[in-house]
Write a protein that binds this DNA or RNA. Sequence first.
DNA 1: TGTGTATATTCTTAATTATGAATATATCAG
DNA 2: CTGATATATTCATAATTAAGAATATACACA
Lengths: 125, 125
Amino acid sequence: MEETYEALSEISKAFAHPTRLRILELLSVDEACVCHLTHILDKRQAYVSQQLGVLRDAGLVDVRRDGQMIYYRLADARAAGVLSLLKDLALGSNPKLRYDPVPRVPVAGCPCPRCNEADTCCCAS
Amino acid sequence: MEETYEALSEISKAFAHPTRLRILELLSVDEACVCHLTHILDKRQAYVSQQLGVLRDAGLVDVRRDGQMIYYRLADARAAGVLSLLKDLALGSNPKLRYDPVPRVPVAGCPCPRCNEADTCCCAS
DNA sequence: TGTGTATATTCTTAATTATGAATATATCAG
DNA sequence: CTGATATATTCATAATTAAGAATATACACA
């Protein structure tokens, strides 16, 4: 009866980090490769991989490889729900905060196909 | 744009602890005094107070005094929603987990009125 | 096979969090 | 005021987490 709350806290801990929250928010819009996340977050690649590892270990994200790129996506759409409710809670305590929607845009300098091929780019249609 | 996610992670961190999750779950049923929580959780009083302090600092719970007793309750019902979604996520990764509903029952040995006065006790009506 | 690119891991140290012990504060009863 | 009870805080230390640096792995392409 106590260990089940250990499991719950393991998942909660994965949320409890600013960079990981941003990653989850980006992934709730669309799957993304590490290079894409790295460019958007403006962090070192190794650091982003570490945070992705934490999310992976917690079971919050799934991974798929496509050639050289590795794409991450939410393992469960309810993770986006948690994120959304957390934002509501935060806004409740401090209405000055802003959580604007994050569009899926091509990132200059990102080598992934989605940022470079017009037909697969999100801004193509 | 980064500091807002700091605020979000502060709230998330408050969730990221087994005892605090149990407290939040108990409070999502009904407000409770520290002695009630202490008895149910079977922890030392100082420890429960510490965890309540973390929840208080995060703005997740509100406090009211009534005589010697201090009653805690959720500051925002959406905290219960976060908890509920977290449980769904946990069950998604491990269906063997059990999160049974927690009834509000009088606790033997708990000195609070709700555990001792028939008219205010939850099992009276 | 060798080179370049994308991603992951390991190691180390700093920072934070967890938690027990002791103690302080606040209220009530007398 | 005094003692008893409910709750909070402070302090010290153990445990965990954060994050940079260096390096390893895996695939693509020539």
